[in-house]
């Protein structure tokens, strides 16, 4: 204790100096507006930084709740989005084909089940007869031909994919109208085979293959794919390898094509027979 007092005595000059200087500064800050505001600003900056740190930590702790709120808000907003509302409401758009005088309407649908690895691949769509879908309707995507509706329930329909042994589609080369039959050979899901193109047709790699419109299922001119390879087969015909324009592996949104005049056409054909 005594040595402590000795120590104090030894540094009494420094202590007194600090004491008086601190007192002077208190006087300074309390009596001069400029210095006062400087000190206040400085301390406010300091405390502001401190408080923002604290609130950062607090935010982190309440992150889970915050996330939940955001997710709920997201869902609410998603439901307000046009695309969500339209999910169960169909858009009918009229396209008048002036060449064949046929009228088609389109229904949007989404693929809810899909396969590409089997020999007989089917798709399932989230629309059924409640939305006006019937068997034998064509399914296309924005890239090209997808398949044909086979079975329909109230809210779902199954589609014979282009990647199916049973699927054959009447198609033609866009630039010269030579038509043939396109089918899938069951190996690579990116390629199909076009047959019955005569040897005298001008065929080149890269040519576009489109639907012919003969079947009355598909409108004319829908893209199927592009020629990637061709060879002579069976005497007078080419066997053409077509790279499909639709990537079935990432197929999501499709359109159901409704041919409004199909019934009339079929009735007429039946009468004629």
């Amino acid at each position: 204790m005594r040595s402590f007092f000795d120590f104090l005595l030894r540094i009494h000059f420094l202590l007194l100096f600090i004491l008086i200087e601190v007192f002077s500064f208190i006087l300074l800050v309390n009596n001069n507006n400029y210095q006062q505001s400087s000190v206040v600003n400085f301390s406010r900056q300091f405390s502001g930084r401190y408080y923002s740190r604290i609130s950062n930590v607090k935010q982190y702790l309440s992150l889970e709740e915050e996330n939940k709120k955001l997710a709920e808000e997201n869902i609410r907003l998603l439901n307000l989005l046009e695309s969500s509302i339209n999910k169960n409401r169909d858009i009918y758009g009229n396209i008048v084909d002036s060449l064949t005088n046929q009228q088609y309407t389109y229904i949007t649908a989404q693929v809810v089940n899909n396969s590409i690895s089997k020999k007989h691949n089917f798709l399932t769509l989230n629309k059924g007869y409640a939305s006006g879908i019937k068997p034998e309707m064509a399914i296309i995507s924005q890239d090209g031909v997808v398949g044909i509706v086979k079975g329909v329930s109230r809210n779902y329909s199954t589609v014979i994919s282009l990647l199916n042994f049973d699927f054959k589609i009447s198609s033609k080369i866009k630039k010269n109208d030579f038509f043939g039959s396109l089918s899938w050979d069951g190996t690579n899901y990116r390629y199909a085979t076009l047959k019955e193109i005569p040897l005298h047709a001008d065929v080149q790699i890269g040519d576009t293959i489109i639907t012919s419109g003969f079947s009355s299922i598909y409108p004319e001119g829908i893209v199927i794919g592009y020629i990637s390879d061709f060879e002579e087969k069976t005497g007078s015909f080419y066997e053409i390898k077509v790279k499909l324009s639709v990537d079935f592996k990432k197929l999501k949104n499709v359109y159901v094509v409704r041919d409004l005049l199909q019934k009339e056409k079929i009735e007429l054909e039946e009468q004629t027979q």
Binding site: F25, L27, L28, V29, N31, N32
Partner: peptide, 11 residues
């Protein structure tokens, strides 16, 4: 200028 000269002179 309360405090200003005081602190300087003490220094």
């Amino acid at each position: 200028t309360i405090g200003m000269h005081t602190s300087a002179t003490v220094f």
